[in-house]
Amino acid sequence: MMKLGKSTLALFVLLPLLCVIYLSVVSAWTYPLLFDAEFSLKHYLVLFSGESELAWSFVQSVLLSLVMATLGLLFGFFVAKEIAFSKYGSRLLKLAFYPYMIAPVVLGSMLQFYFVRWGLSASFFGVMLAQSLFILPYAVLIMSSFWSENILQLFKLGQSLGGDAKTVKRTLLYPLAKPWMLLTFAQCFLISWFEYGITQVLGIGKVKTLSVISMQFLKEANPHPAAVAAVLMIVPVLLTFIILYRWQNKAQGNWSAIAPINNSLSHHPKKVGA
């Protein structure tokens, strides 16, 4: 019973990944061909042909997500601090949920007019701005769980032991915040990496991130390049996470690896399905 459950679960989780990998290496895939289909790496080779839209799309996605993650981290770190120690902190903080909970595609449609008017649509910068609308508030949500009374106490303690503000920041604040910062960075990266709705609406198809381009291939009923796009979306992130996970576990005790994740997951949901 237990074993059956386990394998069902494993299958449920693995099937989609295996499916996209499989689709990315077959061609002329007519029903009912399965393992007797034609296997080749030709859909990948296109990536290196120089003129490949997909390769450019990958680069653009990476750039966009890195920029968004960095912005999210900086904004989240400093704004969360002010909010955490403000009189209306918790009430203000809840405002961050609003832009985050509206479906991006609807938010984008409602804002399209302004973006067009101000010449922001169809540009990398415009998409950046559009994603900022919900990524920045979200970053504040995550980082605010770091800025507790406890952290403030530790900070003062550091000072009373003789460190000036700069030293205490370097020796206490940043090392303590590191796991949260890493989490904020990673989450913002992923939200941007996954985003489709607002990027499509306000990018008018010109800003071709991986999710936009894989949807385009999908609409052409061209599953193989779409699968390559999906693999490009999943596998590098998967590898990065495995490496980070290993490194985190080795470099530090359990404290840092677990604390913020438990903390923030229960308060702030990861963006999905929208």
Partner: peptide
């Protein structure tokens, strides 16, 4: 509608 002076397309 937005009164743009040039088009993206």
């Amino acid at each position: 509608e937005a009164g743009k002076e040039s088009s993206e397309v």
